[in-house]
Nucleic acid binder design. Structure first.
Lengths: 348, 348
DNA sequence: CTGTTAGCGCTTTCAG
DNA sequence: CTGAAAGCGCTAACAG
């Protein structure tokens, strides 16, 4: 029914091995023979059987990219960059690699499930993007799984995610702490002393690091933090809206709101406006990431730019073995403070 | 080295066949036996070999989701919804399905390549999202490939994409034409007579349909279109910015700008502001899709809401055979006009 | 440069 | 309910 490599071989009057060789292009074959095989492939409309090929070769062309939220451009941009470096020729069997992105939704279970699925497929590489969930049990399970996959020959690269202990996985991490600190210091230098902070979900490393950077800045300037000034939420617009109303309720005298990321900042701006407050005249707002829309908000958003595409591309190349990993297997990538219209001196 | 099903069988003192049966759960096995096998699996830390399994069974748990631009929330939202319906239990071998998204970048070649890759993997289903490229050659190639995949047992579902002729693929299409028409009619009723239109790439169905709807509205109101009023670009912010400047250059008397989608509208707003024009006092702006950020722009964006998540979820269920396809295999999903602050009566 | 020969690890009749 | 045996379609030594 379905045409196999043997059919092609018969038609081209060569052995199956030869067909395999021209298809994989990793072995010398006479030009005329290749020609004949290729023609047969074409005439028969033959498609290589991936599973059979992977089984025999004990590797596959699958590359998995795990993201926390595929609907968030933060991940989309990284994933896109990674894929662009992986998609090209270079895999086995005809060249192309199948770079696929898996959406964990931020759930540790789904993350592990996807890894298992990828492990089953004998994936060539796996890239994990964005913050990790901080939970001892989960971290242990992840480390064990990653180690096992690495042993089985799967390359593991962490992209925009902190290094995983007990795993010799390559990590290109963002300096969230440093970026957050810079951002808050900028606000403090403008004269702000009462700053609200909208943090992400408590369990994420990204959340903790950014919050730590924020607090380090406060401390450096001798500002004592009021517990009412911090609210936790999710990394989305809606959460930013609600958290801002909550902050305002707790302390209407805040002069600045620092958001966990740009989407949250967007919601914060909306909440402030709906509360009759002007930005930045009454309250300054700052985000994080510098997503594409951030320059277009009104006023445009002060934020920390993360080189998402660059890091994604680099991670992709490292995963493909086309670029040297950073020394020690770990690199910290800094963000860049982008001062824009949403931040100004405090009112009064 | 790597533990196989045979190892598990030995340890559990049963035959490989039995292990396979408990793993796939599609065959009666005594509870006590199952227990023993599961324990062995656990103790040995056994992971099913996907390729081997797929080869023997002639199917796989892979489900592919093709998107034009993974960095665009339009696709991210659909992909996320699709995955949430597919990820769950229900696949072979332990339950989970591997739902993966493939980024074509809008390139016909990459689209075809991904399909071939998915075809090789004997994917269980493939979902194609967003507009299709209108090119006779490509359309033919696509149709042929889709047909072949369908014959091989792969379910094909088009999500937010017009039906593919000569393919009995299920299609859940968006009524882009109707939505665009409504939108432009809204503007016309506000009094606008000179409307610029920023279209997407010419080759996409989405672009053509939206433009047709826009023109139908103009015609219905007896407005003769000036060729200078239409500019083509890409579906992103940058393109919207540049196209708007171009429109303004061509005809400074425009009172409204209709954008191909919300991202483009965002760029249009920025360009208008940078040109010293107020929205909507001097120029009204409208987008399409109603992405999450659109309600937060200033002024908030008048647009057409597309039920991306709902359609994605439905497509996912249909692909999994958990929901009946629409009658005739084709459904047209309407958008909803969202009138917001960016549209008002023309100046003067 | 090309053919032959064994499997890769799992599923699935077919018997019991 | 369980076991034995025969492949699934391809790759990779190993010889020529």
């Amino acid at each position: 029914m379905t045409v196999t490599l043997a059919d092609v071989a018969a038609r081209a009057q060569v052995s199956p091995a030869t067909v395999s060789r021209v298809l994989n292009g990793n072995y010398p074959v006479a030009a005329s023979t290749r020609e004949r095989v290729l023609r047969a492939v074409d005439e028969l409309d033959y498609v290589l059987n991936g599973p059979a090929s992977s089984l025999a070769a004990a590797t596959s062309d699958l590359v998995g990219i795990l993201v926390n939220d595929i609907a968030d451009p933060f991940f989309g941009i990284m994933a896109s960059a990674i894929q662009s470096e992986i998609g090209g020729p270079g895999g086995r069997a005809g060249g192309e690699r199948l770079a696929v992105v898996c959406n964990t939704g931020g759930s540790p279970e789904r993350e592990l499930t996807y890894l298992t699925l990828l492990q089953r497929q004998r994936a060539a590489a796996v890239l994990l993007t964005g913050g990790a969930v901080e939970d001892a049990t989960h971290a242990t399970a992840m480390a064990a799984k990653l180690r096992k996959m690495a042993e089985a020959g799967t390359r593991i690269v962490l992209c925009g995610r902190p290094p995983a202990p007990d795993t010799q996985a390559i990590a290109l991490a963002f300096d969230n702490r440093g970026g957050a600190r810079q951002l808050t210091e900028h606000l403090i230098r403008l004269g702000h002393r009462r700053l609200g902070y909208i943090a992400g979900p408590v369990e994420l490393t990204t959340t903790r690091h950014r919050l730590e950077g924020h607090r380090a800045a406060l401390e450096a300037y001798g500002i004592k933090e009021d517990p009412r000034w911090t609210v936790h939420g999710r990394y989305d617009r809606r959460s930013g809206y609600e958290a801002t109303l909550e902050l305002l309720r707790r302390d209407p005298s805040l002069t600045a709101v620092v958001a966990a990321n740009d989407s949250v900042a967007l919601g914060a701006c909306a909440a402030l406006r709906d509360s009759g407050l002007r930005i930045p005249d009454d309250v300054s707002v700052a985000g994080f990431d510098d997503l594409p829309f951030s320059v277009d908000t009104v006023p445009s958003l002060t934020t920390v730019r993360l080189p998402l595409a660059e890091v994604g591309a680099r991670a992709g190349r490292i995963a493909m073995g086309r670029e040297e990993p950073p020394p020690g297997g770990i690199a910290s990538v800094r963000g860049e403070l982008m001062v824009r219209g949403s931040s100004g001196g405090p009112r009064g």
